[in-house]
Design a protein around this nucleic acid. Sequence first.
DNA 1: TTCCAATTGTACCAATCGATAAAGACTGAT
DNA 2: ATCAGTCTTTATCGATTGGTACAATTGGAA
Lengths: 190, 190
Amino acid sequence: MARMIAERADALPGLAEVFREYGYAGASLSLIGTATGLGRGSLYHFFPGGKQEMAAAVLADVAGWFDAAIFTPLEQADDPRAGIDAMMVEVDRYFRSGQRACLIGAWGLGATRDPFADSIAGYFRRWIAALQTLLARGGVAEDHAATLAQDVVSGIQGAVVLSRALNDTSLFRATLGRLTARLYTALAAA
Amino acid sequence: MARMIAERADALPGLAEVFREYGYAGASLSLIGTATGLGRGSLYHFFPGGKQEMAAAVLADVAGWFDAAIFTPLEQADDPRAGIDAMMVEVDRYFRSGQRACLIGAWGLGATRDPFADSIAGYFRRWIAALQTLLARGGVAEDHAATLAQDVVSGIQGAVVLSRALNDTSLFRATLGRLTARLYTALAAA
DNA sequence: TTCCAATTGTACCAATCGATAAAGACTGAT
DNA sequence: ATCAGTCTTTATCGATTGGTACAATTGGAA
């Protein structure tokens, strides 16, 4: 009966989808079981800490993905404009043009955040810092780079909320475009 | 045993707080009972439809509050700038400078929205329309007013997410200030 | 005072919750 | 062939879930 295929990491995508859609409290073990294709035994084998460990693993996985796919490329981009473009492309893909919620942002809003407050804050701090670094390297004044980076990360989160609520993918993409334009303008003025 | 004091409306604030903090699934009847000071009997007397009716009532209450305190004043403001200022003051107060989540925005992100998708979308549409109307009356070009209104509502939602995640009230207020400045600039150019 | 409708407390329901335990099935290495 | 270790199934736990039923109690109208 053992597949030897299953690793802990294989369960994470399904796990993340359930948590994202139903929230921490709403993600029951039956839903999790269905989404991951794993029985209770397997789940508790991979996550002895239970639901809380599953949530922590998902959070770490999402944060890790953003780190590798967005934050680090952002910091290491040769051309600031190319770095920004790459970020926006990945953001649009990841959030499915605003139809997919931000798990970390959503958990930050409710009581779920308490056990994970540091991870959640760290994720956003890292994102802002990476963007700020890029802008500063592009010649943007430090304080302007800081507020601009905040505005962009905040603007993306707002676009996720609004475009999901209105069920409007074009709104998300248009907002990303406007945020990109603001970044370009700041770089051009520098 | 009867108090004869309690009305259905008296339960709404506590109800809203629980739903906001714990989400729909996480808001158990015990939590709701504690927060409202009402037993199961009273709750099901006022809300025969159970949890779902409680949620719908809270949603309608929040939307009604915004309508009366923000949207309508926005539409009827004599001076666009004064209308904007009043909105920002109320927004900052309502969201407690970003420490209080937006119940409607949060529910729009997850599976909870399904039964309430129309109400949630209507809330945001109304907000954007009111702001857009104000800008248009201030002489801002229609398409510019539309995108600007979207950006501001989206920006407020993003600021709630970000400032709550970072536990930073000054970030929320600063973002509101920058959004206000953008609106002023558009009005000045008109 | 009597009575009625509104409100509340209590007990209870089946279903599901998260979690545990133990036995079984499979693997790779010896 | 055997063994240790990995993974899965199944059954089950006590607690809690949302919801119901009903009697007790109340304030106000008659």
